[in-house]
């Protein structure tokens, strides 16, 4: 019976396994393999050398690019967590009618199904030299000269990250909060806990799985991003993803592969640390 069960399971899962095998597993192996290959100016050839890694790991650029990317990840993560938690908390505990709750939740999630690139482009009229932000600030006399650092800067990159990724935090945290047994909160209140104590001693600990899942999403999305950084910094800021995409643009596939392997390992280490706090499969 178990053999039949196993066979049936694998049979049903086989399309999934085949697709992910061919377009995920084998490509990752290909990257690992090519990261040891050699390259000329316009092509690459099979070899087994550590040159790509040696160059990558001894370059001072690598360290500064990683530090910059970690900075983006840390700031984006804290802002997404702060905003995402507050919004989820408001929806889960302050909205009392279910239809309203669903409606407001949908308002928060609909942008997920629209284009990221368009959402980035739409910051131009806000942040540009003659944009709404600068005009408003000048109008009220807060500044005399337009601020140059609003668009095409690290500020713009982080703003866009928060804009794009906060909903990855809201959804899992909201999901966790909706599973909290309301009688626990009643009990805490009856036992004399203040609102703040309920938040820190009941709600936050029980929302931790959602917080962790959201954090994994936000951190990995920022660590691997190349488009947002490129577009919102106007090409002035570097990140690990951008370095890889530049190397791809220059057809330096072995160098890009080595960078990709290091990025993948970094992300996996970060995730394995975060996974210590939560069992994803239990949370669905």
């Amino acid at each position: 019976m178990t053999i039949r069960k196993t066979g049936k399971g694998w049979l049903l899962a086989s399309p999934l396994v085949l697709i992910l095998g061919f377009f995920l597993l084998i490509p990752v192996f290909a990257i690992v393999m090519v990261s040891f290959w050699g390259s000329t100016e316009y092509s690459y050839y099979p070899a087994f050398q550590f040159e790509n890694y040696q160059f990558l790991l001894t370059s001072h650029v690598t360290l500064s690019v990683y530090l910059k990317t970690f900075m983006f990840a840390a700031i984006t993560w804290s802002l997404c967590l702060l905003i995402g938690f507050t919004v989820a908390y408001y929806l889960a505990f302050h909205i009392r009618s279910l239809p309203v709750q669903i409606l407001l939740f949908l308002i928060c999630t609909i942008p997920f199904w629209t284009s990221n690139i368009i959402r980035m482009i739409s910051w131009i009229p806000f942040l540009g030299r003659n944009g709404i932000a600068n005009n408003t600030l000048q109008h009220f006399g807060v500044i005399d000269e337009p601020l140059e650092w609003l668009l095409f800067s690290d500020f713009a990159v982080i703003l866009a990250f928060v804009h794009l990724f906060t909903l990855f935090m809201i959804v899992p945290i909201f999901n966790s909060m909706m599973r909290i047994d309301r009688s626990l909160i009643e009990a805490a209140r009856d036992a004399g806990a203040t609102g703040k104590q309920i938040l820190t001693n009941v709600i936050i600990p029980l929302s931790k799985p959602g917080i962790m899942i959201g954090s994994i999403f936000v951190v990995t999305l920022v660590m691997g991003d190349f488009l947002t950084v490129r577009f919102m910094s106007g090409g002035q800021s570097a990140s690990v993803g951008r370095v890889i995409s530049n190397e791809i643009g220059l057809l330096q596939y072995p160098a890009a592969s080595a960078s990709a392997v290091v990025l993948l390992l970094t992300v996996l280490i970060m995730i394995s640390i975060m996974l210590r706090f939560v069992d994803i499969r239990k949370e669905l």
Binding site: L24, L25, V28, I31, T220, G241, I244, A260
Partner: peptide, 21 residues
């Protein structure tokens, strides 16, 4: 784990890996 890996792998690795493959 394969499915979760597919979700969290930086997108540029898929692009690069499939391109190379």
């Amino acid at each position: 784990y394969l499915v979760i890996g597919s979700l969290i792998i930086p997108s540029i690795l898929i692009s690069l890996g499939v391109g190379i493959l």
